[in-house]
């Protein structure tokens, strides 16, 4: 049984040390900071916070080394990325319309049986489009899987062996936030989930998002565009039933019941849970419990303290 802690941003109010104490014993910590991209190696501050020896898995740098050794692998990944990007553009065209329709219906009053039926149907249309998108994403990943897992890529295999060894010597894995697509791609490339065994994981912000079943991008008030949340990719599936929402207080209009309700109903049965400064959420094999300062978006449009799932 693997223990998991999902945390909010760690820059201003770091609680990673306490989270590690809850999910793992004392000992060395493996860390993934690939989401920080070119700053991946700058882990001094993190080391100060965790107060234990750390080994940076350097997935970003390792990936560069692998691409140099196996340029065809880079080409295949680029090809997959191009397909994912095109799919996302096509998906957005449809999503904009169904989301706008759902929002307009949810804002209508007075309430009536007829209106509720149309609202339900509009939300179902969004869910159906999301499911279709998720299925298309899976198809793309499946299509590339065999080409990506070609066993003769020695550099990749060597890095995987090294990573397996480091993880075997660690008491937990910490996954930092940052660029969620870069992070997810590197975790996938080295098949980190398969190397974990029962190792406890502490992940925050984009790290938490990558562990979910689906990776959902969100911002309710961007400077350009409508602010439509969208499924970016299939997640690693290590954090079941949770849709983590880091920086929810600044990114989401939590005081807008229509947007909250639509978000919660759209992604149900996943629990849409805020992860802000000081937030933590614990998985101990059976259920998610609230460590601190987490809230859940409710179908009613309310945002309530998260207790247990």
């Amino acid at each position: 049984m693997r223990r998991i802690a999902l945390l909010g941003p760690q820059r201003l109010q770091p609680i990673i040390s306490q989270a590690l104490d809850r999910v793992a014993g004392q000992g060395p910590l493996a860390v993934v900071t690939a989401g920080w991209q070119e700053r991946e190696s700058e882990v001094d501050e993190l080391a100060d916070h965790v107060r234990r020896p750390i080994t940076n898995l350097r997935l970003h740098a390792r990936a560069e080394e692998v691409f140099q050794a196996h340029p065809e692998l880079f080409s295949i990944l680029r090809e997959r990325q191009d397909q994912l990007k095109l799919l996302q553009q096509l998906h957005r065209l449809r999503l904009d319309y169904v989301l706008e329709a759902a929002r307009r219906l949810l804002r209508r009053s007075p309430s009536s049986t007829l209106l509720e039926k149309e609202q339900e149907s509009a939300i179902e249309a969004v869910r159906s489009l999301d499911d279709h998108h998720a299925a298309s994403l899976r198809d793309i990943h499946r299509e590339f899987e065999a080409r990506l897992k070609e066993p003769s890529r020695e550099a990749l295999l060597r890095h995987r062996r090294e990573l397996e060894e480091i993880l075997g010597d660690s008491v937990a894995l910490a996954i930092a936030g940052g660029h969620v697509a870069v992070l997810l791609n590197r975790l996938r490339l080295f098949e980190i989930p398969a190397l974990l065994g029962d190792l406890p994981v502490v992940a925050w912000s984009a790290g938490a998002m990558a562990l979910a079943d689906r990776v959902v991008l969100f911002h309710d008030h961007p400077p350009q565009g409508a602010g439509n949340a969208e499924i970016l990719d299939i997640g690693l599936g290590l954090a079941p039933g949770i849709l983590p929402l880091p920086h929810a207080e600044s990114r989401l209009r939590l005081d807008d019941p229509v947007r909250v309700s639509l978000f919660a109903r759209r992604f149900s049965p996943a629990a849409c849970v805020t992860l802000d400064n000081g937030s933590s959420l614990l998985w101990e094999g059976q259920s998610w419990t609230d460590g601190s300062n987490t809230r859940r978006l409710q179908p009613s449009g309310d945002v309530e303290v998260f207790e247990v799932l």
């Binding site: 941003p9 936030g177 940052g178 660029h179 912000s205 984009a206 880091p246 920086h247």
Partner: peptide, 8 residues
Amino acid sequence: GPLWMVYE
């Protein structure tokens, strides 16, 4: 900016 992609 990388608003949609980066969650630190």
